[in-house]
Each structure stands twice: as structure tokens, then as C-alpha cells.
Design a binder for these strands. Structure first.
Length: 621
RNA sequence: GCCGACGUAGCUCAGUGGUAGAGCAGCUGUUUCGUAAACAGCAGGUCGUCGGUUCGAAUCCGACCGUCGGCUCCA
């Protein structure tokens, strides 16, 4: 499988949007001389101005937020007297096209902070922006009688904005991205240089909708959700549970090979446990509410760490036993806010492929982190997933409520993780404010079909919990020492992993994961008996095979099997029954002709055991 | 959680104040068929829930529940 470019670039990602003041005042710009990225950014940002111009026509009292370019176009945030409706977008877009035809020049001018404060007196958000600007760096831009406080980055005139744009959606957005601030109405636009590129973008959106795990999950009967079971509480149907079981068996075997020990721990604990671990202070709003009986408080666990710490604590350990790798497919419960629960990728009850590695010290922790990265590369190689990036997720020293306060601990952890990434020569980026509350981590970020960034793998170095729980082991010197814990998830939660795989494979699972691996299709009723024999023979190799004995024509059965994305259709009629064979049809491929059943069994076993991404000379997808 | 839209049969959808519809899926029967949909019949809904307006509500209003698109948060 080739690496697939993200279908839809992340919406929030800002492109180049920084222009020195001197350059901003320059009105003569040769667009063709600019790199495409900057040219597009200028076009998109200019289009945002034109949108604001049209919006002021619709609502003269509109309060203006910001209107930056984004990777697929632009947006502009407004506070408006009423909610926008889709018809407003039609009207606004028409006005914008009128402004483009007018070829109005964008004219930048500089002004003092005092002048700007007077000029923008009626625009609270602009005043808020102005407060952060240095004297001498205040500029505004005028076109067609519309002026915006703006640092620049435009095209020369509105005629240079390509007509290949479209207002796409109305959304809500908090001012400056903080939920403490007022919520504004955001209008998104898509803008590309050519109509062909805009078309391609729209086709990508369509493609993303086709790959959506919620749609495919329903069509293939992988999972379901019920109002009365609750949002984010996934019901795995037999087909989806089969995929999950294969993944679980596989990862547990890989872990056993690498010296992990599996445990089973309860999904409920006394709140006391989480008070001690620190979850209570940093995580409580994300936990299910307390259950109280007989004067005791219990909670559903949001994380497995404290339970695995109990496993470590159940006896006194020697440095000779370490590292001790404790693993569990552990159920966790997190009270996600109602607006963010979605399909299987964002749920409230989930199973994490979790493990905690208890290490004697920095050196051992470092080597364990390396081992985890190697396991991760192996696992994702087998799954054929290549569309990911490493992120070093750091704490935010300025945020004392979100992270435990212990600067030396954070420094040690961050340095350790950075060293491992550098030694492994893995390209990574650093992100402040993305750490766990108890320590920094390496996250591996994947992109979903819809273009959203999701964390799958996470590796964390933790000096905090060993301290909270007073963990000890006996060292070579006979003294007591505090271990370091490496937390790690490889497959992520089973929910999120299966959601990602559905989208990655578009429901066309490789043989080893396919819920039904082959369906035997008798041509007429008299072939049903032979079909059952073929199926029995394959089932004796633990292949998941069905017989389609329905009263349908062969064509109909083939069509249904294709729609169910079953890897192999084994058509049997008189000729095949005679020869002890079946005509093999490959999903998405053609008829391979009759093949002896023993050979089919051998080939399918091989593909399954090798976890092949290919189906009998065809790509699995 | 916040803003907005949406909620009609298992699924996809039509129906905008006057007796609930279609296609697919399901069931029954006929057909026994060579690589992406045979034919016919039957059955299936207190229109998300609760309340209100009205002679009359799927349709208008309100609250709640859920879904979707964003924002914020996150495995």
C-alpha cells in the first residue's frame, strides 16, 4: 500500500500568514513571481476581506473577528444580530463575485495606536487585537470602501482573487479559541487557484464521506449505537467483534514475545485510588460520576495506570526482575462532553491496548521507549498504515492547573524522549501543552479520512505516579529505589483503531481481518451440498467461510458478496463439483477460474498467516 | 459543554395543517440460473420523547433526548 496523502488537510492549520510591515505596505505585488503557497495565502486572505465586505452589507452592525487563510481556503469570524442560514451564504457569495468583478485595489495604510483606537472604537474584537500590537506595527487595509484592521498579505486588487471559490459552511467558533470568550459565527470558504483544483477538493470531500467509518460500519454491520445504551457506548456486532478479536490476539502475542505479562484488573475502583494517583485533581470532569453505596465512593476507571501500579505493588521487586512490563486490554470510561462523541473514533467507554513498564532508572526507561517505538513500527508496517507523524508532547510550565508542578521531573522526561527520537532518526515536531498531566509523551499522530489529526500511539515517561504511590524496588546496592514508569499504547483503543482501519481500507479488510473471508456460491440448488463440503473443508483450516444458499441467482449473490466486501467468492457448479474445485473470484478483481479446493485452502491460509495486504495477486483494496 | 442544522419502516429518502408513502432489506411462493440486482405477493411506522396551539398536528410552538457540522477538549 502506498502512503496516502491526507484526503482533506486539517481545517485549523494556518498557512504562511506573516508579512513584515514594510512588505505589507507594498501594493505592487507580482503574484506570478511568488511561491504557490504564498500566492494562495494572499488570494485566500483577500477573499476573506471580500467576504467581510459583503457581510457588512448584509449586517451593517456586524462585529468583525479575524479572517485568515487556511489550507483549503479561508474563514472569517463575525458577531451578528442573528444566526446565519444557508441562503445567506448564497447571497454573500453572489456579492463577493460582484466585488471580484469590480477589480478594487487593496490599499494598505499605517496608523498610530491612538488613531486605530478611535477608528475601531465600535469593533470590540478589533480593539482586543489592537491591544496586542506594538506602536508602529498597526496597519489597515481598504478595498471598495471596506476597511479592515489587518497586517496585510493581499493580492493587488479583487480581480486577482480567482473565481474558483465557494462558501462552504457556517460554524461556531470562540473568540481567540477560548471557550471563556464569546462565541462568534464563522463562515468557511474553499478557494483554489483553478476550477480544477476546487473540483478535486470537492471530490476529496466526497471520497472522505465514502470512507467514513460510521457509514461503512453500518453497511458492513460492524457495530451499532443505541439511544438507550447511551452515546459513545459502542455495541460491537459479530463482524466488528471478529476484527477486534483478530487484532487483540495478534497484539497480545506480539507482547508476549517481548516479555510483557498480561493482567486483568477491575474497571471500578474506590475514588481513593484516583485521589492518590492525582487523577482526581486533574481529570475528574472527564470521569463518570461517583457511585456511592454503604458509605463508600466508587468510580469507573478513566485510566488503567493505578491498577497496574497495584500489580507492581503486590510484592517487593528486585532490580533483577526489571523492567517489568504489565499489559492489559483495559476498559476505560471517560465522560466526553456530549458535543464531541462521534462514531467509534470518539467514545465514552473504550478498550486500550495498554501497558506500564516499570524501569530501574533513566537508562532502562530509555531503552524501553526505544523498544516500544520498534514494536510500534512493526505493528503499523503490518497494518499498512504509513500516514503518521511523531509528536513530542510537552507540558506547559505556565499552566499550573493542568500539569503537576515539578520542573526537574519534566525536564528529565522531555530530555529522555527527545534523545530517543533523535537517536532513532525519526522526524518529529514538538508541541507545548499536549502532555499528560503527569508527564511528557511521544504521540504518533494519524490523519483520518476526514482530515482530522488523531493520536493512536502514545508513549509516556512518568516520574510522578511512582512518587505518588511511593513505589520501590530493591537495587543492586541492597537499598530501596524509586522506579520510573513508561506508559504506552500501541494499537490505541480498539474503537479508534478499528475506526481508522475501516477508513484506511475503505471497508476492504485484508484477509486476516475480514469478518467473512470467503463465501461459497452454489450456482443452482443441486450444488448446495457440494458448496457445504467446500466450506467445511476451508473451515477445518479455521477460515471464516459462509455458504450463500439463498434462493437467488448467482449474479445476485456475487453482487451481495461484493457489497459486503468479502475477499473471495467461490463459485461452484457442475464443473467444479466434478473436479473438486471452485471458481475463485477476487473482491474487486475478476474470475480466476477453477482452482482445486486444497489449493484454495493453502493459498488463503498463507495470506491469512502472513497478514498479507494482497489478495491473490490483487491489492486488498 | 457552546452555536447551528437535522430526527418519518432495519437502511436511503418523499410527504408543510385534513385517513402515513417509495426503493432496498425482510418473509412467502414461482424460477434452478456460469461472474455486480430474476419475477410475484405479503408484512412492516402511536412520524425521536413529552407537553402546548388547533375541530384536526408527521407538518406550527416549547422543553428534553439523540445525530450531524463546527468550536473547545481528547485515546
Amino acid at each position: 500500500m502506498e502512503p496516502r496523502a491526507p484526503l482533506v488537510p486539517a481545517k485549523g492549520a494556518l498557512s504562511i500568514w506573516r508579512f513584515p510591515v514594510a512588505e505589507a505596505l507594498e501594493s505592487q505585488i507580482d503574484l506570478t513571481a511568488l511561491p504557490k503557497e504564498e500566492r494562495l495565502a494572499r488570494m485566500r486572505h483577500s477573499a476573506a476581506h471580500v467576504l467581510a465586505e459583503a457581510m457588512l452589507e448584509l449586517f451593517p452592525d456586524a462585529e468583525l473577528g479575524i479572517g485568515p487563510p487556511i489550507d483549503t481556503g479561508f474563514y472569517y469570524d463575525f458577531r451578528l444580530p442573528r444566526a446565519l442560514v444557508p441562503d445567506d451564504l448564497v447571497w454573500l457569495e453572489e456579492r463577493m463575485r460582484g466585488s471580484l468583478a469590480g477589480r478594487h485595489p487593496f490599499v494598505m495604510s499605517a496608523l498610530t495606536k491612538d488613531e486605530a483606537a478611535r477608528r475601531w472604537a465600535g469593533q470590540p474584537f478589533k480593539l482586543d487585537l489592537l491591544a496586542d500590537l506594538e506602536e508602529g506595527a498597526v496597519t489597515q487595509c481598504t478595498h471598495a470602501g471596506f476597511t479592515d484592521l489587518c497586517r496585510g498579505g493581499h493580492v493587488a486588487h479583487t480581480g486577482e482573487i480567482p473565481a474558483s471559490f465557494k462558501l462552504t459552511s457556517i460554524a461556531a467558533a470562540y473568540w481567540r479559541g477560548s471557550e471563556k470568550n464569546p462565541q462568534l459565527q464563522r463562515v468557511y470558504g474553499a478557494l483554489f487557484e483553478t476550477a480544477e483544483e476546487l473540483d478535486a477538493f470537492e471530490r476529496q470531500l466526497e471520497e472522505a464521506r465514502r470512507r467514513d467509518h460510521r457509514r461503512i460500519g453500518r453497511d458492513l454491520k460492524l457495530y451499532d449505537l443505541f439511544d438507550e445504551v447511551g452515546p459513545g457506548h459502542v455495541v460491537w456486532l459479530p463482524a466488528g467483534a471478529t476484527i477486534r478479536r483478530e487484532l487483540e490476539r495478534w497484539i497480545e502475542d506480539l507482547e508476549l514475545d517481548r516479555g510483557y505479562q498480561h493482567v486483568r484488573t477491575p474497571v471500578v475502583a474506590k475514588s481513593e485510588l484516583y485521589k492518590r494517583s492525582g487523577h482526581w485533581d486533574h481529570y475528574q470532569e472527564a470521569m463518570y460520576p461517583i457511585m456511592e453505596r454503604e458509605g463508600e465512593e466508587y468510580v469507573l476507571r478513566p485510566m488503567n495506570c493505578p491498577h497496574h501500579i497495584m500489580v507492581f505493588e503486590s510484592e517487593l521487586h528486585s532490580y533483577r526482575e526489571m523492567p517489568i512490563r504489565i499489559a492489559e486490554l483495559g476498559n476505560m470510561h471517560r465522560w466526553e462532553k456530549s458535543g464531541q462523541v462521534s462514531g467509534m473514533s470518539r467514545v465514552r467507554i473504550m478498550t486500550l491496548n495498554d501497558a506500564h513498564i516499570f524501569c530501574t532508572g533513566i537508562e532502562q526507561a530509555e531503552s524501553e521507549v526505544e523498544g516500544v517505538l520498534q514494536l510500534m513500527e512493526e505493528v503499523y508496517g503490518v497494518l499498512g498504515l504509513k500516514n503518521y507523524r511523531y509528536r513530542l508532547s510537552l507540558g506547559d510550565p505556565s499552566d499550573t492547573t493542568k500539569y503537576v508542578h515539578n520542573p526537574p521531573m519534566w525536564e528529565k522526561g522531555e530530555a529522555l524522549l527527545r534523545r530517543v527520537l533523535q537517536r532513532a532518526r525519526l522526524p518529529f515536531h514538538e508541541a507545548v501543552g499536549e502532555a499528560a498531566f503527569y508527564g511528557p509523551k511521544i504521540d504518533v499522530q494519524f490523519q483520518t479520512a476526514a482530515g482530522k489529526d488523531e493520536t493512536l500511539v502514545t508513549i509516556q515517561v512518568d516520574f510522578h505516579l511512582p512518587n505518588q504511590f511511593g513505589l520501590e524496588f530493591v537495587g543492586e546496592d541492597g537499598e530501596r529505589h524509586q522506579p520510573i514508569i513508561v506508559h504506552r499504547g500501541i494499537l490505541s483503543t480498539m474503537e479508534r483503531m478499528v475506526a481508522l482501519l475501516i477508513e484506511e481500507y475503505e471497508g476492504n479488510f485484508p484477509l486476516w481481518l475480514a469478518p467473512t473471508q470467503a463465501v461459497v456460491i452454489p450456482i443452482a440448488d443441486r450444488h448446495v451440498e457440494y458448496a457445504r463440503e467446500v466450506a467445511a473443508q476451508l473451515k477445518s483450516h479455521r477460515l471464516r467461510v459462509e455458504v450463500d444458499a439463498r434462493n437467488e441467482r448467482m449474479n445476485g449473490k456475487i453482487r451481495d458478496a461484493q457489497l459486503r466486501k468479502i475477499p473471495y467468492m467461490l463459485v461452484v457448479g457442475d464443473r467444479e463439483a466434478e473436479a473438486g474445485a471452485a471458481a475463485v473470484r477476487v473482491r474487486g478483481g475478476g474470475d480466476l477460474g477453477a482452482v482445486p479446493v486444497v489449493e484454495i485452502a493453502a493459498e488463503l491460509r498463507r495470506q491469512r498467516d502472513e497478514k498479507s495486504l494482497m489478495l491473490w495477486n490483487h491489492p486488498a483494496q
